[in-house]
């Protein structure tokens, strides 16, 4: 089980504007996002669909938007993480930052 309080430090990751962590049924475990119910549904459905295609090789999904506040979905074990990026950061840099955060977080969890 996640330490939810510690997970909230994802907001300190450069480029992360908002986030939400959900399971496959769209149950919310942590969030700091506008309209969490709607975003939980999106993250859960798209996360499951992406996992069906990529299996364990699914790295992330990017939904590009007109205002460049792109929406990302990452697999985190049996959960999925949705992240809205800040407009002024590159997609690949944001993805690298979040993946690094998740690795550190999961490593610390197992120690």
């Amino acid at each position: 089980m996640f330490n939810i309080e510690r997970f909230a430090s994802i907001l300190n990751v450069p480029g992360v504007d908002q986030y939400i962590l959900v399971d496959r049924t769209a149950k919310i475990f942590a969030h700091a996002i506008t309209d969490p119910k709607k975003m939980a549904e999106i993250v859960s459905i798209c996360g499951v669909n992406s996992h069906i295609i990529g299996k364990t090789n699914f790295r992330y999904l990017i939904i590009s938007r007109k205002k460049h506040n792109n929406f990302f979905i990452f697999p985190v074990g049996k959960y999925h993480l949705g992240v809205i990026k800040q407009e002024n950061i590159d997609n690949s840099l944001l993805a690298e930052n979040v993946i690094r955060f998740l690795k550190d977080f999961l490593n610390r969890k197992h120690r």
């Binding site: 999106i42 090789n57 939904i63």
Partner: peptide
């Protein structure tokens, strides 16, 4: 339908 302003989507697998 829910975000409304999507221009493109990209899935990264391996």
């Amino acid at each position: 339908s829910w975000l409304g302003d999507v221009t493109e989507m990209a899935l990264f697998v391996a």
